[in-house]
């Protein structure tokens, strides 16, 4: 697999505070990579560093094989960035916001309408950005990031503050992009989002990656208790060891038609984070 984003032992301090500490990961072409962490973990800083807005103190970061400290027009044309603060022109209309960037990128006006359709904002194209909902603003920011049809998309908390329906719409758009082969680097503090969207994730805490891998593999790795939670029709919950030793008990329940539901108790990404850091997920 060819890697389009590479970070090796990246460290960064701002003032006396260590923001990133020996961060290493690689993102393959066409992959959705999720960086999970609570607020203040260093996620946005890492995106800034990978997109050349900041320079690391130590280690190296490469984007499309080039050092992120020296990204040129060719690399910039291959990346789309959606920051958490969006950076939209509030007084201008939806269309004018994209038209401005179309002029910057030398892209035809026809592309704007196509993009507005793809993110479901065509009907709102004449509306001032200040009059849009949070979800619509997020989708507009995403449309702007998609304008150049780059190979890599950086999304900083793309669904933060969105309702479940809009979140699902965003997820559908991102899944569609993945099918087109776009590499997506996304930060989130929503573990369900990460687990459902990302091929691989990294858990970031206080500037350090404390675990990374496929979401399912991480959860299985920390499944120390390996229990089954059996909910009986009587309302009682029974925890059984997920092993042949529990077979007899399970058989009894099945014969009595007493089982309402069976769930495994494998940890979630959130519980793994809590186990590793001893901190609550915020």
């Amino acid at each position: 697999m060819s890697y389009v984003i590479e970070a090796e032992d990246i460290s960064l301090s701002l003032g006396k505070k260590q923001i990133l500490d020996q961060i290493s990961f690689r993102v393959g072409e066409g992959e959705i990579f999720g960086l999970l962490g609570p607020s203040g973990a260093g996620k946005t800083t890492l995106i800034k560093l990978l997109t050349g807005q900041l320079k690391q103190d130590a280690g190296y970061a490469r984007l499309l094989g080039r050092d992120t400290g020296g990204l040129g027009a060719a690399e910039h044309s291959q990346i789309g960035v959606m920051m958490d603060d969006l950076g939209l022109y509030e007084r201008l209309s939806v269309y004018d916001n994209l038209a401005f960037y179309a002029d910057i990128y030398h892209i035809s006006r026809g592309k704007i309408e196509e993009l507005l359709e793809s993110v479901g904002l065509y009907e709102a194209r004449r509306r001032a950005v200040s009059k849009l909902s949070k979800g619509m603003k997020n989708r507009l920011s995403l449309a702007r990031a998609l304008m150049r049809e780059g190979k890599i998309l950086f999304l900083d908390e793309p669904t933060s503050g969105l309702d479940p329906v809009t979140t699902r719409q965003m997820h559908e758009i991102l899944a569609g992009l993945k099918k087109k082969g776009v590499t997506i680097f996304l930060t989130t503090h929503n573990m369900y989002e990460a687990a459902s969207l990302c091929v691989r994730v990294a858990l970031l805490n206080e500037g350090k990656i404390i675990e990374q891998g496929r979401p399912g593999e991480i959860c299985r790795k920390y499944n120390d208790l390996n229990l089954l939670r059996v909910t009986l029709k009587s309302g009682e919950e029974v925890l059984l060891k997920n092993s042949p030793a529990s077979a007899l008990r399970m058989r009894e329940y099945l014969e009595q038609d007493a089982i309402w539901a069976i769930h495994s108790t494998e940890p979630t990404l959130e519980s793994v984070f809590i186990e590793l850091t001893g901190k609550e997920w915020i």
């Binding site: 997109t51 807005q53 027009a73 910039h76 044309s77 920051m83 603060d85 950076g87 960037y101 910057i104």
Partner: peptide, 13 residues
């Protein structure tokens, strides 16, 4: 203040 400038500079302006 509104970070529109940061986005512009990221767009190779």
């Amino acid at each position: 203040e509104k970070n529109t400038l940061r986005v512009l500079l990221l767009s190779n302006v």
